[in-house]
Amino acid sequence: MELLECKNIYKNFDDKEVLKDVNLKIQKGKIIGLLGKNGTGKSTLIKLINDLLTPTSGEILINGKKPGVESKDIIAYLPERTYLDKEMKVKDAILYFEEFYTNFDKNKAVKLLKDLDLDINTKISKMSKGMQEKLQLILVMSRNAQLYILDEPLGGVDPATRDYILDTILTNFCEGASVIIFTHLIADIERILDEVIFIDKGEIVLTSSADELRNKENASIDEIFRRYFKC
């Protein structure tokens, strides 16, 4: 059984067709890059998988089941925006995750925050945007999930932070779990990808193993992506 399967997904917003016949199969133990320019349906697809939207037609299955309580328990999702109650302190956010997610590893989160020199008594609204993003990443990666869905984890951060984020992802994702990284910033992440999926204008246009693609095209994924989308 696939960890995640999308079958003939269509999604319309009023008259606008945002996703067209998207078919996807994600297996266990892979790091997948879902690559596409902004506004090509990437975030819509993420929201569908996370039950934040419902497809116009088609079916999404996580471990063979539709999105619901069970799927949410095994998916750790990092959205692009900050989704924590900013009135909370860091320790409140940790407690919140601990209360709602059975697979949340509190000690791991505390340790990672310590590495960042972040005081857990800090109010989230008092933290910089970058710090808030790191906190969110730590909370998400401290879950022993089966599928990590990361939406633009490198968006708008400086190179040092990029390294930190990539390291955190790589060192903390659970063994045997899969990671899907949705992004348009490919150069920095491509070395950790097993598979790449290109999405364009709401359709999946290419699915391949990263190394095979490099071999075939004799170029980096970033280069291939640029060529493909001529940007």
């Binding site: 150069a187 070395r191 190394d211 095979e212 490099r214 004799n218 280069e223």
Partner: peptide, 9 residues
């Protein structure tokens, strides 16, 4: 790494 060549190689 050289992103243009398969990483495993």
């Amino acid at each position: 790494f050289d992103n243009e060549r398969p990483i495993y190689i």
